[in-house]
């Protein structure tokens, strides 16, 4: 797939769990500032592919990658790369909201405190700015000192987004960010993704095809570790080129 201004490029990229391939020989280019959705049936390697981008797969014993995954002219899987710096530039939001058992403020401030020496005032500004961008500020501005686990599930997930945004990443990876939330909270997260579009390159894995069609500019369809189809969301949903894409979209399997 050609893209005018790619942010992340994969070339013959594969991931194995021990001998078992999870992602097979995929090539793609993710456009800067766009929202790209990855869809596909369970176990097709969507999450594995997503977690490869910030090397979260390193935590899984026996997981290894082949081929190239280029971010900013560097191979993400280059042994010489600084993983910590990489993860600072590529933020992530997980399936289940996972705020730390700390205060709302400390959650958002966790990343900035790690990477830069900010004064108290700068830190407060950064926290407020991040919470505003995650559309959470008005709800929590009076309870910044409260434990984050006291927030509702939807608020917790937006807090996690704010926490990821606080380190000023370039890319935001979202691994089924609404699957644990009710429809109303899901709607707010989707609105938020729409607001963040342009400022960040967003890669979102979702089970929900309506969600993919609502929020994304591009959609990739993954099936059994293979990239079946990749294209502008409207084209893929209305005129799928591949038979398997059409079958999946119409609910014949998956």
């Amino acid at each position: 797939m050609k893209s005018s201004n790619p942010h992340v490029v994969a070339r013959q990229f594969s991931i194995y769990y021990h001998r078992q391939p999870a992602v097979k020989n995929v090539s793609f280019a993710i456009e800067r500032g766009a929202v790209t959705a990855i869809i596909g049936p369970s176990g097709c390697g969507k999450s594995t592919l997503l977690r490869a981008v910030n090397r979260m797969n390193d935590l899984i014993p026996g997981c290894r990658a082949e081929g190239e995954l280029i971010f900013d002219e560097e191979n993400i899987y280059d042994p010489a790369i600084d993983v910590v710096a990489l993860r600072r530039r590529i933020g992530m939001v997980f399936q289940k909201p996972n705020p730390f058992p700390k205060s709302v403020f400390d959650n958002v401030a966790y990343g900035p405190r790690l990477h830069s020496r900010l004064s108290r005032q700068e830190l407060e500004e950064r926290v407020e700015q991040s919470l505003r961008r995650a559309a959470l500020w008005d709800e929590v501005k009076d309870r910044l000192r409260q434990n984050a686990l006291a927030l509702s599930g939807g608020q917790q997930q937006r807090l996690c987004i704010a926490r990821a945004l606080a380190v000023n990443p370039e890319i935001l990876l979202m691994d089924e960010p609404t699957s644990a939330l009710d429809p109303r909270a899901t709607g707010r997260i989707e609105d938020l993704i729409a607001e963040l579009r342009g400022a960040y390159t967003i890669l979102i894995v979702t089970h929900n095809m309506q969600q993919a069609s609502r929020v994304s500019d591009y959609t990739a369809f993954l099936y059994e570790g293979e990239l079946i189809e990749w294209g502008p969301t409207r084209d893929l949903f209305t005129r799928p080129k591949e038979k398997r894409t059409e079958d999946y979209l119409t609910g014949r399997f998956g």
């Binding site: 979260m56 935590l59 910590v84 710096a85 993860r87 990343g111 790690l114």
Partner: peptide
Amino acid sequence: VPAAYREAAFSLGASRWH
């Protein structure tokens, strides 16, 4: 300790010791 905390910290660029 839930693995989710560990993942969250790593994804924010924290080292293992941190």
